[in-house]
């Protein structure tokens, strides 16, 4: 997970992270252990929250096109074992940044696996915290 490479930077900005999956609890537990996720992995099999943020079905070109294939090849090159998805492969993901005032600072619905905002883009949206 690209975000994990920025774990310390994220912690320094006091940004809480929750990862949300639509897959089963058993699979989520296996993934969290395998990836040594430093953040909670929430299970939303109903997908209501994702749908509320407009994460609908993706287009085939975005899901299976060159950018998506390149993303998966990079994961394989890093030694990741890719599992066959067990549910709706057209479901889109995304990133929602919520400010301290509980308002949305960044609303990004990914068009496919290759479409995620850079961590720097996410952190730029956060207000600078004054330090003594």
């Amino acid at each position: 997970m690209q975000l994990q490479q920025h774990e310390h930077e994220i912690a320094a900005r006091q940004l809480a992270v929750l990862v949300v999956t639509f897959e089963s609890r058993e699979r989520a537990q296996r993934y969290a252990a395998e990836m040594k996720l430093p953040w909670p992995l929430l299970v939303d099999e109903s997908r209501r929250l994702a749908w509320g943020y407009g994460m609908d079905r993706g287009r085939r070109w975005d899901l299976y096109g060159p950018a998506a294939i390149w993303t998966y090849l990079k994961l394989l090159a890093r030694g990741r074992r890719l599992e066959r998805p067990t549910d709706d492969v057209t479901q889109l993901g995304g990133d929602i940044l919520v400010g301290a005032d509980a308002r949305v600072l960044l609303h990004h619905v990914g068009s496919g696996p290759a479409d995620r905002p850079a961590v720097s883009e996410i952190l730029e949206r956060l207000p600078v915290v004054a330090t003594d």
């Binding site: 990862v19 639509f22 943020y53 492969v89 301290a100």
Partner: peptide, 22 residues
């Protein structure tokens, strides 16, 4: 453990939705 939006009031929060766990 249950996580609610209000648990994170007063600090920024990033929700990362994974389309599937590869």
């Amino acid at each position: 453990q249950i996580h609610r939006l209000e648990d994170y009031a007063g600090r920024p929060l990033l929700l990362v939705f994974h389309r599937h766990l590869a």
